[in-house]
């Protein structure tokens, strides 16, 4: 059962991360907490899973990163991610696809009820 759940989660991770980044400029840890909070703990993403995913989205040109020096914290640099124009278009396309996808899946699941 858990294996199938993991597969579901993996499949929608990019979409959700992209959506969260599209809402506002954000950083790694913030993404993890937002994801956890907004999913009532269903998506407990770990750093080890998040980084490769972020790098891949960046590599595909869907998001871009900027480093900002934080005031009052030993000049610590923090990496912020924001969505690109291409990312926004891709996100819209993915959301449309998700609507259609989930609709069809639900339709099949209701067969015989």
């Amino acid at each position: 059962m858990e294996r199938y759940e993991q597969q579901f989660k993996k499949g929608v991770l990019e979409l959700m991360i992209l959506k969260l980044i599209s809402v506002e400029k954000t950083y790694g840890y913030d993404l993890i907490t937002k994801l956890k909070r907004n999913s009532n703990g269903l998506f407990c993403l770990k750093e080890g899973t998040l980084y490769p995913l972020l790098y891949r989205l960046e590599g595909d040109g869907l998001i871009c990163s900027t480093e900002e020096v934080l005031a009052g914290s030993n000049k610590r640099k923090k990496k912020y991610y924001e969505i690109t124009e291409l990312g926004r278009e891709t996100l819209d396309g993915l959301i449309d696809y998700w609507d259609s996808f989930s609709g069809h899946v639900n339709k099949i699941l209701q067969l015989g009820d």
Binding site: Y27, Y29, I32, E47, Y51, K77, K79
Partner: peptide, 11 residues
């Protein structure tokens, strides 16, 4: 990854 991870732990 090292920088990101250090940042995350600090956060």
């Amino acid at each position: 990854i090292k920088r990101d991870m250090e940042n995350s732990i600090t956060d």
